[in-house]
Design a protein around this nucleic acid. Sequence first.
DNA 1: TACTCCTGTCGAAGCGCTTCGACGAAGCGC
DNA 2: GCGCTTCGTCGAAGCGCTTCGACAGGAGTA
Lengths: 338, 338
Amino acid sequence: MSTMQDVARRAGVSVSTVSYALSGARPVSAPTKARVEQAMSELGFRPNAFARGLASRRSRTIALIFPATEAGISGTVAEFVSSAAGTARSHGYHLVLWPFAAHEAEEIRDLVHQGMADGVLLMEVCLQDDRVEALHAAGVPFTMIGRTEHVEGLTFVDIDFDATVRQAVAHLVDLGHRRIGFLNHSATSHAAGYAPTLRAERAFGEAMRERGLEAHAVLCDENPAAGRRAMTELLERDPAMTAVLTMNEMATFGAAVELQARGLRVPADVSVLSIATSPGVGALSNPPLTTMHAPGSELGRLAVLSLIHLIEEPDGHPPEPSLLVCDLEPGGTTAPPP
Amino acid sequence: MSTMQDVARRAGVSVSTVSYALSGARPVSAPTKARVEQAMSELGFRPNAFARGLASRRSRTIALIFPATEAGISGTVAEFVSSAAGTARSHGYHLVLWPFAAHEAEEIRDLVHQGMADGVLLMEVCLQDDRVEALHAAGVPFTMIGRTEHVEGLTFVDIDFDATVRQAVAHLVDLGHRRIGFLNHSATSHAAGYAPTLRAERAFGEAMRERGLEAHAVLCDENPAAGRRAMTELLERDPAMTAVLTMNEMATFGAAVELQARGLRVPADVSVLSIATSPGVGALSNPPLTTMHAPGSELGRLAVLSLIHLIEEPDGHPPEPSLLVCDLEPGGTTAPPP
DNA sequence: TACTCCTGTCGAAGCGCTTCGACGAAGCGC
DNA sequence: GCGCTTCGTCGAAGCGCTTCGACAGGAGTA
């Protein structure tokens, strides 16, 4: 590994000039710059990350706290990660993922104190979240993907569950549906205060009530078998139900099976609309599911941009939060009621 | 942030003594050590990772090249990540994930040259894999999860697909099945040289041929709809098929639906055995799937241990590769043929 | 012409840690 | 008591970079 010294010697300039040529922090004349670049590429020079970090107190690294649960991660999260990594790279940052469970706030703070990241992205945020306080106390710039109950002074990007659910309900009501069920995430997530579960539930209740409709909502584990059972429960609550809104990918498949088993055709007898869905999931079923797909890429991009703003302009006014609505992607599972 | 200087001053010792107390690289008397530790905790001292890395040329970080595809990650991978992170931590290393697509070998080398990791874990290895050559050329210690076609001189941990498929076939044959189909991963993965797809296909062919049985294998995209079609194809190839071996979680659900749609009962008419399966997937269907679950945690642990060995004893003889067989987890979907 | 102001460059002082050589103080055998 | 090793500690020299102050020399201004 060659060092800046080597580059400086070869280019016939001082080390500081090499540094300036690289960073642009001070002007360097075109011919000098060219010689430096020549020397760098001849030597295959890579600046040492530690030396740079030590001298500049910046790591040029963004850490994404990564929910390393046993359940795997969804396509939306994967999309988010790719997009965030790409955005970070194009702004001269590395994105690294730190696998930490929700309760490991201490470890996160430790790493941050060691200077391992200039800023942190926090995902799978709960309405009350220890990690938010830990990061806040540590004084690190951070952006949430999702948001806590109170967001004063915090930076976040999130899906606008309220608007998404309202649009979903509107879509179904416009088709003529009046009896609509909602198949939400799991009771576990609800109990843990997982924000999407709670916000969507609230929004569904309000949207239906405003129209004078009855809101039948059930919580449901993230698997097909639970989806079947949840569908059964919804149909028991209202046997005349003509549409079901789902926010639970695995369960949606099960719900479809249950409808089929009861001889109910989709969408002729019952419409199915799946919201906050991963890309490509709609195409997995036949007919293709009508979905409102989660803007994973856009969230990734915006989250990184906000965070970089926070890092680079700590005294500037904080970036506006972004709330994104899921896009309706027409499929073959919504239609007017029978 | 307090520094070692502060700690040294407070404890009334020199900086180097603090360093030795922390690292144990030289003996430090018990009372001195106690004073130093006292001072450290009073000040909330965290050693600066960059200074440490710069001085010692070691980052105490292990990077996991993380396949940031759009498809999300399976429970097995998630299990692997948690276990690897835990193992690394208990040995004084951080595990960070670097999201990189398969073709970004250059970027990986760059980061390594910057000294950002002492070693690398590479997953989703293909039989021919550029990244392996890049890492080898860069001279970084690395361990593969999976393996290339030729593994001389390389360190890896992997599922023993050969033994797993043979055990799976043996399980079905012991129950009395003679007409067995195999539902593999996708044609795309096959074309990309994705090792599990190829090895399992080969092993299934051999295991069946050795018993004088016909091997019907199909490739199948990773979704329920494709699973239904693949099941249809298998039944067309051999309408009297009594068992199907699957290595494709999403497709397995679809296959089950197709069987049900044809009035074939599982397991009374057709047995289903899913191999290399994520934890908990068996319980998702009713009756619970009989599975051979992938040893994600154990792979994570062993991979990290191998890599640490490689890092810390570069001249020792390389660690033995590990090949782990998936565990049979009895469920309710295999039974003797009708 | 004399002055200020940039531009482009250099040297040197760190950043906070590890690690090496040195050295006094014990502890040992003889 | 002598030299010998061992233990515990210190001081200082880096690790490879950034960044600050300084300064030569040309451009701009009065």
